[in-house]
Design a protein around this nucleic acid. Structure first.
Lengths: 126, 126
DNA sequence: ATCTCTGCAAATGTTTTGCATCAGC
DNA sequence: GCTGATGCAAAACATTTGCAGAGAT
């Protein structure tokens, strides 16, 4: 049976309090503020389990290592800031593309990513 | 000055003859059919250089290691077959999404990926 | 002859795994 | 007290790099 350890609570709390998906290293460092001794292997193991079990969602962007967020926050499309590299959920209706893919191909789904500047990084604003 | 070695010719030829972007390992194995002794380090070095120099394009899909193709073939969107995992260029007009991203954000670009079954993998067809 | 490129092996960075110990139940 | 979870260190992978020798110009 699944055990409720302080490490898992710490990781869950970190992601609960984060407004955006985070990477394993980032999660480790944040979790260490609650549990200084926590190890990276535990973070990886916990993330993997939580994704399989469905409580966390893995967020993959092209050319980027995976990030993680609470499921239910799973946004689509995601927006990546070219300045700070942080990733945010965007919540835009996907507007599915025309099926003008190669003949004989069957489209079942799609993913859309946006790039630009987040509000913190827009130059003459904010 | 840049040298025209048999290894580079082999790698270029492999990608020239390929209808889809390929990964480093895949490229190595294909190139070995022309030059048995070629090493993986040479493949990585050659790909990196060619991308910087612009003759090859790096194709990144979410959660996937990079693939490479001749530039000019750079398709967008890309289509990935969920059965054989191969990636194909799709050549669909992007139909840019509405700018309903979070307020204060500046969208500069986007990327779209399609998933489904390629013509080789569609069940009762072909 | 020069100087870049290559192959090998070692280094790096990231993720996974084995194992003895720890701690939740 | 069981048994799953943890931390550490080692292993596994993918990619990069140092270096001496090979090959292109």
């Amino acid at each position: 049976m699944e055990r409720n350890t302080s490490q898992r609570r710490a990781i869950q709390r970190v992601l609960q309090e984060s407004a955006r998906p985070m990477g394993p290293r980032e999660i480790l460092e944040a979790a260490r503020r609650h549990i200084p001794g926590i190890g990276i292997a535990t973070v990886y193991r916990t993330l993997k389990r939580a994704v399989e079990e469905g409580s966390l969602a893995q967020v993959d962007l092209p050319g980027e290592p995976p990030r993680y967020e609470m499921s239910g926050r799973n946004h689509h499309p995601y927006f990546r800031c070219r300045s700070c590299n942080r990733v945010f959920g965007a919540r835009t209706g996907p507007k599915v593309p025309a099926n003008l893919v190669p003949p004989g191909f069957q489209v079942e789904g799609h993913a859309l990513y946006l790039y630009g500047l987040c509000s913190d990084c827009v130059p003459a604003a904010n």
